[in-house]
Write a protein that binds this DNA or RNA. Structure first.
Length: 887
RNA sequence: GGAACAUUAGCUCAGUUGGUUUAGAGCAUUACUUUGACAGAGUAGGGGUCACUGGUUCGAGUCCAGUAUGUUCCACCA
């Protein structure tokens, strides 16, 4: 069979993915095997594949494919998340482009547009995962708003409400004025912003109730949000502050609107910040709200839900908050209230989804009382029931869990799971599975017959559905105790980004224990963040995020998978550069060329060779490679168990490039245009197959392609071939591995000597060896002679004159050549080596002559040092002899 | 403000309970080689007082304390 010059990844990728699907290799149903379950972190239904997904899903695919090849029933569940805010924003934008305002639509109309949009664009990302080679069970594709899933979310809400874990309450929340919705604390990103600190002077009312003119002094406060003075309810000072304490109990006048507000004392106020007097705006600041409650202050809400000033502001009504800020300063300046304005750098909260400044706002929302369900989730991770990789995230998790706050779960959106609460006209409400049940409950609880009910307009936070993901993809709630959930749950590995440890991971653990009574997964692998070479996070805004599909198209999915993984140390961020793809491509090329070489051997192979034709006298090279493969495989097993995927791939890379290509194939290579005997060829083919097997989870396409080119009638596809569990290191391997090291060292040393003495490769040399380890040399002498073009190899006890002298291990070698020898180069090499060993000898000797060392160190350590000393001494003797022989 | 983690070759990182060499790998770099799988190759080399300062110890990249720098998380004084 003709093998193409290079790997044609485009046709191979299309061919093999279709073939795998056709043969249902990725489909899983419960059977007697042990399950290996992974649920995909569901990407946003609006999402497009980026580098983060690439890393994340490559890792999952490696774990899943490997499990599949190790006899597990591997099941990787795909799906998408409805991503309420993000998706609703996209739909609103699409409508705007069509000239439709969301406000002009009914809820039903809007949702039909949203579903239309979801059907059309949603799930593109899942198609993209196929390009990457991901072995997902597509029959199990789930969506967080599937009918059953939806019902389960509503059920969970009802259940938690029934248990008293969900409540409705008026609290300060983070308000996103663009999305016009509440946000949870986790959805607010604090950024440092260069702002201004405005010092404003308020007039004071004296004992007689007279307003003191500003010219006679007032009270100065500092604020970064001057527009909020319109909502002021008090001015607070620290009761121990001598500057102000006499004012406590009197009143001040809010500028421009002349509202009379009390001056109160509260320890909360810092005397050393700003002016030492704090304006209190209970409707628009978390802390002010607390103080407001404590002192029974009135609440003046001056903002509309879109961030414009409300009629309660009395001034600048309808203006945007930032516009109002500029204008009010002008008005205050004109009225003489501005004392000074300072530059001020401070932290401002932004909405994670819309990136607008979040407003603290008082509103009625639904909450989950987290302390009620967090207990088992905390201990599970503390006790190692669930393992985090890397383990450092354990601390972070614990800290958050121990200081957990209630979770605001209502969102003022339409796209999502509508809150199952029904209200009557009088503000009474019940929580129910549906309207019918709600009516029943009303009649029972309030004795109302057939009330006019209205369902809560709001939706649930997206994470209130995705925290059910690991079991609801198996219908663990909608069809409790079914065969799938019983078999696949708990899942094994969760691979996700550390950013969502609180949003998602922690909450899944809570839901898992609450609803399944079991952990949702055994291991959580947190990937790093993909950054560019300058260490910047990849983002659309910076334009440093490469187009993944384009890249796959250019260089192939396997090269991209290799590139991202090799650059990804376990648990660290990875600085990714396109050049690591090239390393992947080069590696594929190397493999491909090995295949081409073997193909040539296959064509020339003969079943029975005459003794003259035999290319290889023994099967020593096969034994050696077998031993190397065993050692490397067990290293890889260990690394994989520790989730050190990058290290495992490096081990494989070097096994293939160095051990297999550079050494093994060279050792078994027959002479130019000579045939290879079938027995040796079979060994080579077997070994190559075993390599491809191990590489397959990392680079599925090229390995499957080569596997079939290697042997035309494979009984089974590589994708579902089972790894040979017997491939473990054996004690007897040690001998052949040592011989291999001796062979490599001698080849390298002789090649080096040839270069330094300018002996051309085509000129044959004669080798003499003086050694106490004759049996080792005997095992390798034929290969050595072939590799270094030596016409003869013999043992000697005497130095050979006019030769190049080398010390390999504890043996001496003499290279005899026709050529005139340049002894100076040789002498230099030997002397440098001697210098090194003398230095080494001195350092060991020093250590051993230290009495305290010999007294205190462990016996075996001392013994080892003595051995090192002896070895070095032997080496020094040999080197000295060689140098002496030179002259 | 608090905490966690990190700091080893030009870059990205290994280095398991302190003692296996005078600290390793990959990539990059330099020189040389090169007509039989592979110039997308081969061989060899250069490059590190293991961030700094102390301490514990016979012995520290490894343990302890402090300092500096960086990253991340938490909190948020208007």
């Amino acid at each position: 069979m003709e093998i193409s010059k290079n790997f044609d990844f485009k046709s191979a990728e299309a061919k093999w993915y279709a073939h795998w699907l056709e043969n249902k290799y990725f489909e899983s149903t419960p059977d007697e095997r042990e399950p290996y379950t992974v649920v995909i972190p569901p990407p946003n239904v609006t999402g497009i594949l980026h580098m983060g997904h690439c890393l994340n899903n490559t890792i999952q695919d490696i774990l899943v494919r490997r499990a599949r090849m190790m006899g597990k029933n591997a099941c990787w569940v795909p799906g998408t998340d409805h991503a309420s805010i993000a998706t609703e924003a996209k739909v609103v934008q699409m409508l705007r482009e069509r000239g439709i305002q969301k406000a002009s639509l009914s809820r039903e109309e809007f949702l039909s547009y949203a579903w239309e949009w979801k059907e059309k664009y949603g799930g593109i990302i899942l198609q993209q995962l196929k390009k990457l080679g991901c072995s997902l069970d597509w029959n199990r594709t789930s969506f967080t708003m599937d009918a059953d899933y939806y019902k389960s979310v509503i059920h969970v809400f009802n259940d938690l409400y029934g248990k008293g874990y969900i409540y409705r309450g008026k609290r300060m929340i983070n308000w996103d004025p663009k999305a016009k919705t509440a946000l949870s604390d986790e959805e607010v990103i604090f950024k440092e912003v260069q702002g201004k600190l405005y010092f404003l002077q308020y007039q004071i009312v004296d004992n007689q109730g007279q307003v003191v003119p500003l010219s006679e002094g007032g009270i100065t406060i500092a604020t970064v949000r001057p527009e909020t003075i319109l909502g002021d309810a008090a001015i607070a000072v620290n009761p121990s502050d001598d500057r102000y304490k006499h004012l406590i109990g009197s009143y001040a006048i809010v500028p421009l609107i002349d509202r009379k507000i009390p001056i109160i004392g509260d320890e909360y106020v810092a005397t050393d910040f700003g002016s030492g007097a704090l304006k209190i705006t209970p409707a628009h600041d978390m802390n002010d709200n607390q103080i407001g409650i404590k002192h029974g202050l009135q609440v003046v809400d001056i903002l509309n839900e879109d961030g414009t000033l409300s009629s309660d502001a009395q001034l600048l009504i309808g203006k945007d908050r930032f516009e109002a800020r500029k204008e009010i300063i002008q008005l205050l300046q004109e009225a003489g209230h501005v004392v000074k304005i300072e530059d001020y750098i401070h932290q401002v909260g932004f909405s994670e989804r819309t990136d607008v400044v979040v407003e603290p706002r008082l509103s009625l929302q639904w909450w989950v009382d987290m302390k009620k369900i967090s207990g088992p989730a905390l201990t599970a991770v503390q006790d190692g029931e669930i393992n985090f990789h890397p383990a450092k995230f354990k601390n972070l998790y614990r800290h958050w869990m121990e200081n957990i706050k209630d979770w605001c779960i209502s969102r003022q959106l339409w796209w999502g799971h509508q809150i199952p609460a029904w209200y009557d006209g009088e503000g009474r409400f019940v929580v129910a599975m549906n309207e019918e049940e709600a009516k029943e409950k009303f009649s029972k609880e309030f004795n109302v017959i057939d009330p006019q009910l209205k369902q809560d307009e709001d939706c649930l936070d997206t994470w209130f559905s995705s925290w059910l993901w690991p079991f609801e993809v198996f219908k663990g709630i909608s069809n409790p105790g079914n065969k799938d959930v019983a078999y696949y749950y708990p899942t094994q590995s969760l691979v996700t980004a550390p950013e969502i440890i609180f949003f998602w991971v922690a909450r899944m653990v809570m839901a898992g224990y609450e609803y399944m009574g079991k952990k949702p997964f055994s291991d959580v692998y947190f990937t790093g963040i993909v950054r560019d070479t300058q260490g910047r996070k990849m983002s659309k805004q910076l334009g440093n995020s490469p187009d993944l599909l384009e890249m796959i198209d250019e260089i192939g999915a396997d090269a991209v998978r290799f590139g991202i993984l090799i650059a990804s140390p376990a648990g660290n961020d990875l600085l990714w550069d396109k050049s690591s793809n090239e390393q992947g491509r080069n590696f594929i090329n190397k493999l491909w060329n090995a295949l081409k070489l073997i193909q040539i051997w296959k064509e020339r192979a003969k079943p029975n060779l005459t003794s003259e034709e035999v290319s290889l006298a023994s099967d020593w090279p096969h034994q050696w490679f077998d031993a190397r493969l065993r050692a490397a495989s067990s290293e890889i097993d260990v690394l994989m168990a520790q989730y050190k995927l990058s290290e495992a791939l490096k081990t494989l890379y070097s096994l293939i490039w160095d051990d297999f290509c550079s050494w093994y194939l060279e050792w078994v290579k027959p002479g130019f245009e000579k045939p290879m005997d079938q027995v040796h060829l079979d060994s080579v083919l077997n070994n190559f197959e075993l390599l491809l097997e191990r590489l397959h989870p990392f680079m599925p396409f090229v390995t499957e392609e080569m596997y079939h080119l290697l042997r035309t009638s494979q009984p089974i596809d590589l994708c579902v071939r089972q790894l040979d569990a017997a491939l473990q290191p054996r004690e007897l391997d040690e001998k052949v591995l040592n011989e291999g090291e001796l062979l490599k060292a001698s080849i390298t040393a002789i090649r080096d000597a040839r270069v330094k003495s300018q002996i051309k490769n085509k000129d044959a040399v004669t080798l003499y060896c003086s050694s106490l380890e004759r049996t080792s040399w005997e095992a390798i002498q034929q290969l050595l002679s072939k590799q270094v073009n030596a016409s003869d190899f013999s043992f000697t006890d005497e130095p050979i004159a006019n030769t190049i002298q080398l010390v390999v291990g504890s043996s001496k070698m003499y290279i005899k050549s026709e050529q005139v020898l340049d002894t100076s180069a040789q002498r230099k090499t030997l002397e440098e080596e001697l210098k090194y060993y003398e230095g080494f000898f001195a350092s060991v000797e020093k250590k051993l002559s230290n009495e305290k060392f010999v007294q205190n160190a462990k016996l075996e350590v001392v013994e080892m040092e003595k051995k090192k000393l002896n070895d070095a001494l032997q080496k020094i003797t040999l080197l000295k002899e060689s140098i002496a022989n030179l002259s």
